[in-house]
Write a protein that binds this DNA or RNA. Structure first.
Lengths: 133, 133
DNA sequence: CCTTGACCTTCCAGTGGCTGGAAGCCCCAT
DNA sequence: ATGGGGCTTCCAGCCACTGGAAGGTCAAGG
């Protein structure tokens, strides 16, 4: 199986597969002409990475998880997942804070052709005085 | 006022201020010796950018918003803010989907020294079969 | 006057995770 | 033989910084 087939099967773009090889995540063997060859093992690794990435794991996490595939414990995996979960929760909290502030500002903004704008007023505020008096 | 004072006052790191000048967001004048000088206007711009960035606006959005400071309408600003709000909401939704899946997997993972792990099982799944049968 | 040390300057490189594009093989079908 | 679609490599760029090296400048102290 060549790279474009592997891309179609795994859902990982060919360009990205080459990148993953570059950073040592996958190591597909080569034919005499230099073409990469993807077998069941390589395909499984690519799908695994693809799935992990779609859950937001970093490429380094993927590397670790792939290593844990060959003899890691459920505990090892859980630790990685929990740390990732914490990062996700923190990111969500950060975004929700932004959304809250922005929503309030947008709702107070008339959005007409005047220059008066609560959003701009907020941005012009000295520091982080969100919407207090 | 020199760059480190401006950094302290605005909350934007000196390195970042230089970067902002590099990309043309701010244009502080220079002394004969080459040192940047920050007056009230520059300081206000830096604080404005800092605040906008903290609300998640992109640097390009900041550029636009700064331009709107000199004669833009409330409507112009609101459009930018609403688009940004949409992007934030999308990102939150994406992260919450991840969190939901991961939470479920983590809760089902014993986290002991065995190799059996629902998280790994999920990652090994062919495509995007989250937690269905 | 000279040194010290804290500023300031510029420029280069790296972060993460790709992605686009150019230049150049390779292979098969016509 | 030629055309077109693969494949290969490598370089550059995205976003928004950030670290660090090399070197200029300035005020204070000895």
């Amino acid at each position: 199986m060549n790279i474009s087939e592997a891309a179609a099967e795994s859902g990982v773009p060919a360009k990205t597969i080459r990148y993953y090889e570059d950073i040592g995540l996958v190591r597909p063997p080569r034919l005499a002409n230099g073409y990469r060859v993807f077998g069941a093992a390589e395909l499984a690794a690519l799908a695994f990475i693809g799935r992990a990435r779609s859950l937001g794991f970093s490429v380094e996490d993927c590397r670790t998880l792939l290593a844990l595939e060959q003899g890691g414990t459920s505990h090892d995996v859980k630790v990685i997942a929990e740390e990732h979960l914490t990062r996700i929760a923190a990111k969500i909290a950060e975004l929700e804070a932004m959304r809250g502030t922005l929503k309030a500002l947008v709702s107070r903004c008339r959005g007409d052709d005047g220059a008066d704008c609560p959003i701009m007023d907020d941005l012009r505020r000295p520091a982080h005085a969100t919407h207090a008096a």
